[in-house]
Every structure is written in structure tokens, then in C-alpha cells.
Design a binder for these strands. Structure first.
Length: 276
DNA sequence: CGGCAAACCTGCGAGC
DNA sequence: TGCTCGCAGGTTTGCC
């Protein structure tokens, strides 16, 4: 499902349901997702208290007591849903169930199983191999033209491809890469290292703006994404180009409208007139 | 190291 | 109705 806004939406929902409470029972219903679960997954989690919920890029971090941290990635189709322990039995793709001491149940549901979970030391979380090389958070004040420009100057690939690289910027995925480039007026196949300073000066606020608006809307709900309370996000109504091939461009009067092309095996949506 | 294709999975809608 | 094909908010791996 999930890019930064969707994962942040999940974080906020889980924070309300889980923070301060005990993991009374954990049920792991299959041996692996994309990779095997870590050894003694259930045993290490059972009885732990959830101290805090954080997000880094598209990862959720559950800080637990006893210096333990649970790292969760939702992959393409993962959801975390809040329900009650007395509700219907788990379904086919409900792979992990967290029962809290409050009667709340949190279900990890992931049909494609591209998701991932790992356990690690909470105090050394930044050193974890999955987090170690991730780039700056785009909504942090430290993400600026000055910090982004040198990173882009090292890359000759198309800017759309580079925006998806989590070591360059954290949390952008296929939707928000297209949306940010449209808002910045930059063509997706431009080489990253050939962008001019004034273009990077448009790109940075475009990224911040589209992500901020999407977080405020509870993310985008296309196929799988739900907020943890089951409600839909609604930023899909704010898309200007994503999944709008053939529709009129909302930014200009060109006759071609929104185009779709494949970059790195994935769809990019753009307007050839407004984006140069 | 950079760049690119393939692989990992299941489900759904379109077209025949 | 039922089949095949293409496509899907991601990341890792392996090869050049």
C-alpha cells in the first residue's frame, strides 16, 4: 500500500491503540513474509509494553520495553487494522495478530506478503541494516535545497527513478514521485544531475507540500490502504496525474492531457507540456 | 559503485 | 462462464 503518508497515517492510528499497553498475546500464523520471521519472534514480543510508535521512511518502529524494537514494513499490500479480540476469526491473509491487555487486537494483513518484520535493539535502531542507509526525511526541516542538490548531482538516472531511491530521500514511492514532479513542473526523465538550481528549488517544496497534504488526508486509498480504524484515506481525490492517463491536464490547456510511460518497470504519469 | 532487469507473491479487472 | 494477460502505494538480488 504504502508510501510515507500512508505509513504515517498507520503510525498515528496505532499510537492511539497501542501506546502504553502490553502485548498480552502474539500469534504468528505462518513462518515467513518476504523473509522468515526472526527467531523466537512470538516469545520475545509476548509481555512487552509498547512505549512509542515511530516512522522512518516507510518503516514503522514499535519501541518496546526491555530495549526491544519491532520493525514493520507493509510492502505493497500490507495493512495494520485495529479490531477487538472478540470479533471474527482471522482470515486467510491475516499473518500476525497482536492482542493487547485492553482487549484491542491489531491484525497484520498482507495478501502479497511483500511486507517484513524484524526485531532489534531499540537503542541501536538507527544501525539496523534496513534503516542504516536511508536518506533524509522530506518533512524534516533539515531537508532543503542545499541538502538535496549535492545528492542529485551524484546521480545520472532519471529524476523519477532517483526520487524512488530511499537512500536519496526517505518515503517517496510511485504515486508521490509523479505528483511531486508534476507540481514542480519537471519532466520525469530529466537526468537528476542536470537539474538546475531553480528547478531543485521548486522540487523541494513540491515534495513537502504534496506529502503534507496527503498526510492530512489520511493517505491515499487505491486498493489496499485503510487507516488502522478501517476508514479510507482520501488523498486519491487530490491526485493531479497519478492513474489519470488520458484525462485533461489540471495545470494547462494542452490537448495531449496526462500521459503514462514506463520507467524502471513502473508507471510514471506526467504532462509533457507543463513538465519540462 | 551505478544501472537495470528479474524476482518475490496474490488478486483483480479487461478482453476474448 | 472461464481463461489469459497485464497491472498493482516496494525492496532486494544478481549480473554487466
Amino acid at each position: 500500500m504504502p508510501e510515507l503518508p500512508e505509513v504515517e497515517t498507520v503510525r498515528r492510528g496505532l499510537e492511539i491503540a497501542m501506546q502504553g499497553h502490553l502485548l498480552q498475546a502474539v500469534l504468528q500464523r505462518r513462518p515467513d513474509l518476504r523473509r522468515p520471521f526472526p527467531p523466537f519472534f512470538v516469545e520475545r514480543l509476548t509481555g512487552r509494553r509498547v512505549m512509542a510508535l515511530e516512522r522512518r521512511a516507510k518503516y514503522l518502529i514499535l519501541r518496546l520495553d526491555e530495549d526491544l524494537a519491532l520493525l514493520i514494513h507493509l510492502g505493497m499490500s500490507g495493512r495494520l487494522l485495529i479490531t477487538r479480540q472478540d470479533e471474527s476469526p482471522p482470515g486467510k491473509h491475516d499473518h500476525v495478530i497482536f492482542d493487547l491487555d485492553t482487549g484491542v487486537r491489531v491484525v497484520f494483513h498482507d495478501p502479497r506478503r511483500f511486507g517484513a518484520m524484524d526485531l532489534t535493539s531499540a537503542s541501536l535502531i538507527g544501525d539496523h541494516p534496513l534503516l542504516r542507509d536511508i536518506g533524509p526525511e522530506p518533512l524534516d526541516a533539515s531537508f532543503t535545497v542545499k541538502s538535496l542538490a549535492p545528492r542529485l548531482m551524484k546521480r545520472s538516472s532519471a529524476i523519477k527513478i532517483v526520487l524512488l531511491d530511499q537512500t536519496v530521500i526517505a518515503g517517496i514511492g510511485n504515486i508521490y514521485a509523479s505528483e511531486a514532479l508534476f507540481r514542480a513542473g519537471i519532466a520525469p526523465d530529466r537526468a537528476a544531475d542536470e537539474l538546475r538550481p531553480f528547478e531543485i528549488a521548486k522540487l523541494v517544496p513540491a515534495i513537502k507540500q504534496v506529502l503534507t497534504e496527503a498526510v492530512a488526508a489520511g493517505g491515499s486509498s487505491l486498493r489496499d490502504h485503510r487507516q488502522p480504524n478501517g476508514e479510507l484515506g482520501y488523498f486519491q481525490h487530490g491526485f493531479k496525474v497519478y492513474d489519470r492517463e488520458g484525462q485533461p491536464c489540471p495545470g494547462c490547456t494542452c490537448r495531449t492531457g496526462i500521459l503514462r510511460k514506463i520507467q524502471g518497470g513502473r508507471s510514471t504519469f506526467y504532462c509533457a507540456s507543463k513538465q519540462r
